[in-house]
Amino acid sequence: MRPPPRLIDDPSAASELRADLERVAASAAPYDAGAGLLALQSAIAATTSASAAPRGSARLGSSAAKIGAASAAVVVLAAAAVFAWTGFSPPAEPKPAATAASSASARRSAPTPRPPPRPAQQLPAAEPLAPSAAPNAVINRAPPPDAALQREVAQLGRIKQLLPGDPQQAYRLAQAGHREFRAGILRHEREGLAILALWQLERRAEAGRRTRAFLARYPESPLRERLAQRLARTGERSAQER
């Protein structure tokens, strides 16, 4: 038995049907992966804390997780502002999600204007989750928002600001960001800006190499088209020079 031809490729299928399938296949759900990842990390941390807590402290562990989730929400809100400002796809509906259920109830109780559809995005390479603090160490005071993420968001905005007029400094800052925020969640965006800076600096070999790696790693990046065009233009120029 052989697999059937796909309807999209089947000339005997109705053309409207094939066109609809192509449209749906080419689109993606407008899922806010940045906020979702933070929610998942909070939920995993809560699970880990709960399983590590001694009997009787589970309720306290749950409270700690909620506090941690609230902190994450504050950081996500800050990130949303910078994303919008920098022109990247914004995480428009931050989720204070210690658990899936709590994220749902939070959204239902606080309706927000519907965000415009966003390009699908992929996130940077996996980094290990930081070990969870012991529940009792957390419940005495609310932990500060993720200071590292706040710095990372601010730095990304600075890179974006520098890029048009000072690509050298923008590139240096992006590279410094890669070193400083090894576990950061904005590597994808930062690497895109670093590559754009390289193109502006006419460092074509490195820019080309990193563009190809970027396109392979983040095929759904909002920067994909811009970088691919840049790479194609360089290829054409090289061919003409030969």
Partner: peptide, 15 residues
């Protein structure tokens, strides 16, 4: 792990 898979495939799962 779950986070690596999330980074790569969350949008796929949502879709």
């Amino acid at each position: 792990d779950a986070q690596a898979l999330f980074r790569a495939h969350a949008v796929f799962v949502a879709s």
